[in-house]
């Protein structure tokens, strides 16, 4: 058996796929892993993979041209999932490798993604859905605060790496704003300078104190919003259970109107 240990990122995993194909070991003896092995097994050769952007781009280009944009996006979104391995589930990288090799074998990406009976395809489907769902939630739940220097700042704690999706959405929506969404779990941020395109950056140099200096108007609009939020509730229909079912507790910590009360 040959197990490739990849970095937990889209580049890392796709580089793993590239190397696995380049080495030409027998298909059924290859596994990929996006985490360090916690337990070494006998008769297995562990091959560390160094993430290589160029190799990843080559794989991505192949996937897009052979199987279409939708197939690639499914793989991409699955790779962004924060669930690397579960107790009884297939490793993320292995599921992606398995799905890609099935698609290459049958030549039809759409058909492959529909064969949910295949464990690795089902895993990719689950991972992709989880990421998509959280991203969809956060499109609504992100709250920006206006800082002294006019930058709109937001901090979130997502399970999955959703910043690229959020960056794309908000830079289309707020082209004239300088904004920054800070993923505190991963310590990275998406930054958008007005009228330019967004980019990801790690936040070693982020001055946390500065993100607490708000503009003069900020408190005013925050309290206006909280006034609205309180008054829109119909008292006769009050239902706290339904409320936290719709906006789960783990999101509430970053949502302004849920901190005020």
């Amino acid at each position: 058996m040959y197990t490739y240990i990849c970095e937990n990122s889209i580049d890392g995993i796709l580089t793993g796929v590239y190397d696995a194909y380049a080495d030409r070991y027998p298909r059924n003896e290859i596994h990929l892993q996006a985490h360090e092995p916690d337990n070494l097994s006998l008769f297995t050769q562990y091959l560390p993979v160094k993430a290589d952007h160029e190799k990843a781009v080559k794989v991505a280009r192949t996937l897009k041209s052979r199987f279409g944009q939708e197939f690639y996006e499914t793989i991409y979104q699955a790779a962004m999932s924060g669930e690397v391995k579960g107790k009884s589930t297939i490793d993320k990288a292995d599921a992606i490798y398995g799905t890609i090799s099935l698609a290459l074998a049958c030549g039809d990406g759409t058909k492959t993604l529909l064969s949910l009976g295949e464990p690795c395809v089902y895993r990719v489907f689950e991972l992709c859905r989880a990421t998509g769902k959280e991203a969809m939630h956060l499109l609504g739940f992100v709250r920006f605060q206006e800082l002294e220097n006019g930058i709109l700042f937001s901090s979130i704690h997502p399970k999955h790496h959703v910043l690229p999706i959020l960056g794309e959405h908000f830079s289309d929506r707020l082209p004239e704003e300088n904004f920054m969404i800070y993923d505190e779990t991963r310590q990275i941020a998406v930054l958008h300078p007005a009228h330019k395109s967004f980019f990801l950056a790690d936040t070693d140099n982020l001055d946390v104190a500065q993100t607490k200096h708000f503009s003069a108007e900020e408190a005013h609009f925050q309290s206006l919003w909280i006034t609205f939020f309180r008054n829109i509730t119909i008292e006769a229909r009050k239902n706290a259970g339904l409320q936290s079912q719709m906006i789960p507790k783990r999101f509430q910590r970053d949502v302004l109107e849920f901190q005020a009360s």
Binding site: M136, R173, E176, R230, T233, I234, R237, N239, Q243
Partner: peptide, 29 residues
């Protein structure tokens, strides 16, 4: 889609931004 100036775009499925104390979605002011 956004137009590169001003602000705003719209998504076909809609977006819920919050949920009021009665559990109803808050999407619009």
């Amino acid at each position: 889609a956004g137009r590169g100036h001003g602000m705003g775009n719209a998504l076909a499925p809609g977006i819920c931004h919050s949920f009021a104390g009665d559990g109803r979605c808050i999407s619009l002011l």
